[in-house]
Each structure stands twice: as structure tokens, then as C-alpha cells.
Design a protein around this nucleic acid. Structure first.
Length: 298
RNA sequence: GGUCGGGUGGCCGAGAGGCGAGGCAAGGGACUGCAAAUCCCUCUACACGGGUUCAAAUCCCGUCCCGACCU
């Protein structure tokens, strides 16, 4: 049974390609996009519609309410069990998405130390009242290697490192595997690349289409569904901007421009992330990408 | 034509004789429980020409451009 990954920056055409491939080899698709996990977030995440799915089974889509929060550890476990199921059915699995950490969490032996809401809350309170300095100093004492690797200003990562140390009683760095170890050595990863200008154009077009398709109405529904009670979903690209538009803080034009800009920046971050993984075979979507993938998996 | 106020890096914007404000954009990078998140780095500018001064984006003179008002 095969495991194929299609990754790359947003708007490079991953979904379309994955459908063609799935049809060709009779595979099932697993979403690896952190925001498409949420129900009701369809237009703004460019989620594939039921018709577009063409009958290909899709997994890891629409699993969470907008007032809940996703996290990697949960995703990792769930996605891996989906892979087992698909393989047990004798079919190939295709992972498709742009959330680098999520894909890595499936493929590699990443073991996420547990989280503790009480410990977390204490650390966050300390950060809110005293700032990052005392927290970072403690990290320097308890785990110099981690302090070296994590930037002082990155409070989120400093807090998590301290949380792990507190819970496990071991340094944060000790919890990280030292070498890349693949859980699915047979997995084949493909990355879609596109030059910046073309990508920028596609993003611009896509964002304009979102508003035409009723992005604002979608967000209005999500506001009712409690998107503001969650922490993650409301920060998704475009959603934050539409919320600002609904609140009258920005005009529609500003919201669209801001969404385009933020999406371009996101695409850059995705490229940076994926470029580190040497296992990825890069292909350009303008060329016969489907043939190229079929060639290398057969 | 006259008076006044301005001309600062791709954009916005402070500084008003002497250590390269800052923000945004752009580019590069980091990344193990919020990851479409969080964070780091880079990008030596003062309209032009003279002058004063040890030192000028900052002062003086002239030129050009922009704006407001006056005729």
C-alpha cells in the first residue's frame, strides 16, 4: 500500500492534482490543512466541495466546531489511524495540504509530550504579569540548549518548553528525537512550486472570488456558531479580515487587500518550511505533474 | 506674480547642527500540543546646486517641484 504526500504553498493547485491522482490510482485523500479541519470554514479555506471530490473519499475534513481548537498531537493520532484504515481496505492514501508541521507529525517519529492546562495557565499568567524575562531566564537554567534554540521574544515557544520541562521533569530538548526518523519510509512526498508572480496572481484571483461566493455570509454564520470563543479558527487568513469588515473597522476593499497580502506572506513561510525537507520531489504544476508523480510512484 | 508651509529609503512617518527613530511592504530564515500561529534577520534615506561649520537631513543663498492662501 502506498502513502503519497502532495504539499506546497497555498493556491498552487494541490487539491486538483490530488483528485486526478486519486482517480487514477483509486486512492483516498487525507487533508493536511489545519484550517480545513473546521466545520463551516469552506469558502475562506478554499475547501474542496462535495462535487469537486468526485466521489473520492476525503478524511480529516470538517471534524471540529469553530469554537474548538485543533492541535498537532490530536491531528497526528487521528490522521495515522485513518491511514491504517485506508491501507487495511487495500487502498493507497494521499495526504494533501499545506500545514508543514501536520504533515511532518504524521510522517516522522515526533512524540509530543503531553500538555497540562493548569501548568499552562500558570505560565501564561506569569508571562502576562511579569513579561517574558523571568520565564526565559528559567529556561536558560533548566535547559540551556532549548534556550539557545528558541528566541527570547517567542513567548509561545518559551512557554511550551517550560511546560514540557515541568510535566516531564526532563529538558525540553531531551524530548525531541535527534535524527529524522520516518514512520512511513515508503512514503513519497511531492511539492508543488510556482513562481512568485504567478502565485501572487492566483492568490489575488482566489481572494476576490471568495467575497463573490459569499465569504462574508459564511463568517456571519460562524460568528453565530461561536468562532470568537475559539482561539485558532478566528485567526485564519481572511476570516480575521472579514470579521474586521463586519465590525466596520475596515472596508471590504481593505479586507480583501489585507487578505491577499497575508496569504502571500503565508505562502512564503510555507515555502521556507517545505524547502528544508530533502525528501520532497518538487514539481511545477504547469507541466504534466500528474504524469511525473505516476512515473515516480510506480 | 506674491506670501506662507512642504519636499526624508518601495510606501507612511519622526527628527530640526554631531551616537543610521519607528511602522508597513519586500526578501531571507526559524519552527515538536494555538502552526493560515508565533518569532528572528536584512533592506544606510534625507529634491538639486552652492555656501557656513571641526561636523549639515537639520543653518544660509539660489534653483526646481508640491500644497494652501493672496493678487
Amino acid at each position: 500500500m502506498r502513502l503519497i504526500v502532495i504539499c506546497g504553498a497555498t493556491a498552487t493547485g494541490k487539491s486538483d492534482l490530488s483528485i486526478s491522482l486519486a482517480q487514477k490510482i483509486d486512492a483516498e485523500i487525507i487533508n493536511a490543512d489545519s484550517m480545513q479541519l473546521y466545520k463551516g470554514m469552506d469558502i475562506g479555506t478554499a475547501k474542496i466541495s462535495t462535487e469537486e471530490q468526485q466521489g473520492i473519499p476525503h478524511h480529516m475534513l470538517d471534524l471540529l466546531e469553530v469554537n474548538q481548537d485543533a492541535n498537532v498531537a490530536w491531528y497526528q493520532e487521528k490522521a495515522r489511524s485513518v491511514i491504517s484504515d485506508i491501507h487495511a481496505r487495500g487502498k493507497d492514501a494521499i495526504i494533501v495540504g499545506g500545514t508543514g508541521l501536520y504533515i511532518k507529525a504524521i510522517l516522522d517519529e515526533l512524540n509530543f509530550p503531553d500538555t497540562d492546562p493548569v501548568v499552562r495557565a500558570e505560565l501564561e499568567l506569569e508571562f502576562a504579569t511579569k513579561g517574558i524575562a523571568p520565564l526565559f531566564e528559567r529556561l536558560e537554567k533548566l535547559d540551556p540548549a532549548a534556550a539557545l534554540a528558541i528566541d527570547k521574544a517567542n513567548s509561545r515557544r518559551v512557554i511550551r518548553a517550560l511546560e514540557v520541562i515541568k510535566i516531564t521533569g526532563k529538558p525540553f530538548t531531551a524530548n525531541l528525537p535527534r535524527e529524522e526518523s520516518s514512520r512511513y519510509p515508503y512514503a513519497k512526498q511531492f511539492g508543488l512550486v510556482m513562481d512568485r508572480d504567478s502565485l501572487s496572481e492566483r492568490i489575488s484571483l482566489r481572494v476576490d472570488r471568495m467575497w463573490e461566493k459569499g465569504f462574508v455570509q459564511e463568517v456571519e454564520k460562524l460568528l453565530t456558531a461561536g468562532i470568537m470563543q475559539g482561539t485558532t479558527a478566528q485567526r485564519a487568513l481572511g476570516y480575521a479580515q472579514v470579521i474586521a469588515q463586519i465590525e466596520g473597522k475596515v472596508t471590504q476593499e481593505e479586507a480583501q487587500e489585507e487578505t491577499k497580502r497575508a496569504t502571500r506572506q503565508y505562502a512564503r513561510r510555507q515555502e521556507t518550511w517545505f524547502s528544508r525537507d530533502e525528501r520532497i520531489t518538487w514539481i511545477s504544476p504547469v507541466q504534466n505533474s500528474l504524469e511525473r508523480i505516476l512515473e515516480s510512484i510506480n
